[in-house]
Design a protein around this nucleic acid. Structure first.
Lengths: 214, 214
DNA sequence: GTCTATATCTAGATAGAC
DNA sequence: GTCTATCTAGATATAGAC
């Protein structure tokens, strides 16, 4: 098999196993076994298990990064925000093992720690930009202190809703209803700060999405 | 040393190390070493490492459980809610290793999984009861769907704010300013649903707490 | 109750033949 | 590039003397 193919096979197999069983519970032998290659071969393509994790994180970054860049030109449309959140959850779901063991992975792998801190900072900025855009558009009424805190709350939700949901339902946000509800909860944390009539409009839209899904 | 003393020493040493380095990174040998006893002695007092975790969880439960019971008789006073949240964060902080590796611990230890699920369910009910009390008192204006979602959001925050804060500042909520801000963010997710004048009053109180701390 | 010594197992990782 | 065989380290846990 070509060099590149086996490498890709190892990566996709690892991702699947990590997501399914949690990264700490998946050994390099499991990966090799599942990919139908030898343990030695795996270590021909990757220096270490952490190397696989890092490469998967890079793949995640290249998919996720574009999604939080667009927020700069303020998203004032409810549908746009909804759509952006939906894409974000989708991509994070594909790499959910990263969020399930966030503390341990960053504690163990310095490179990942730096990269993840940077990502979280940019994601927070993206959330703040969205709030700011809504404020400038006159839709959002909120003081500076609360805007900062709301940005933190949103970041917390975006970071931990996947493992949180997995505590209750196995598979977590694979269930697309659960995902829709997760997004709705994020949006409903913002709409109370809207002035009328946008508040009611926005709530109505969110409620409609909700009823369509369940 | 008396049987009971050594057992307690193992528990307190374990708790300290688990909180400091994360449970997966602390071995039974580390614990024995730090407690100045032999590894064999540790296993005289505990069947397994998981047994230590379970016992620590029981201690946590006995401290935490009373805090979420009192919410039944509706807490309509801002100061009461603030105080209750403060106590909750305090106790969780003392056992923060449980929340740092929640998924892995529950995935590995069935007894803990059951107990933690039950606890989360009761904690959510407690949050819901508080919201309901505020609604019955006429302070909170919110529809049923949003009330359910808000309860979920609060539970998420109460569950993950400790590991979340540790991502940014080592020690996390040991820093009491960070803890105060975390509580403020939870409260600020509720106050937007208040009617006036309670909304302004409540926000003013929270803002005052904030400025006193930082 | 506590120790030392050790068994057992499993993980990540390497060596060298093909 | 891939395999088989193996090394090494470190973790949980046990045995048996004191």
């Amino acid at each position: 098999m070509a060099r590149r193919d086996t490498r890709e096979l190892i990566l996709s197999t690892s991702l699947q196993l990590f997501n399914g069983y949690g990264e700490p519970n998946v050994t390099t032998n499991h990966i090799a076994d599942e990919a139908d290659i030898s343990p030695g071969n795996l270590y021909y393509h990757f220096r270490s298990k952490d190397d696989i994790v890092i490469e998967l994180f890079k793949r995640f970054l290249s998919r996720f990064q574009p999604l939080i860049g667009i927020a700069e030109d303020s998203l004032t449309q409810a549908e746009d925000l909804w759509f952006q959140l939906h894409l974000s959850f989708e991509v994070k779901g594909e790499f959910r093992f990263l969020y399930r063991n966030l503390s341990d992975l960053t504690g163990r792998i310095p490179d990942l720690d730096r990269a993840m801190r940077g990502l979280l900072a940019r994601e927070r900025l993206s959330a703040w930009n969205s709030l700011n855009g809504l404020e400038l558009a006159g839709v959002l009424q909120i003081d500076e202190v609360q805007k900062e805190m709301l940005a933190d709350s949103i970041l917390l939700a975006l970071t931990y809703w996947i493992p949180f949901s997995e505590l209750f339902e196995p598979g977590g946000l694979d269930n697309s209803d659960a995902q829709t509800r997760a997004i709705a909860r994020v949006l409903f944390s913002v709409t109370p700060h809207f002035r009328e009539p946008e508040r009611s409009q926005f709530n109505a839209i969110a409620t409609q999405y909700l009823s369509n899904s369940s």
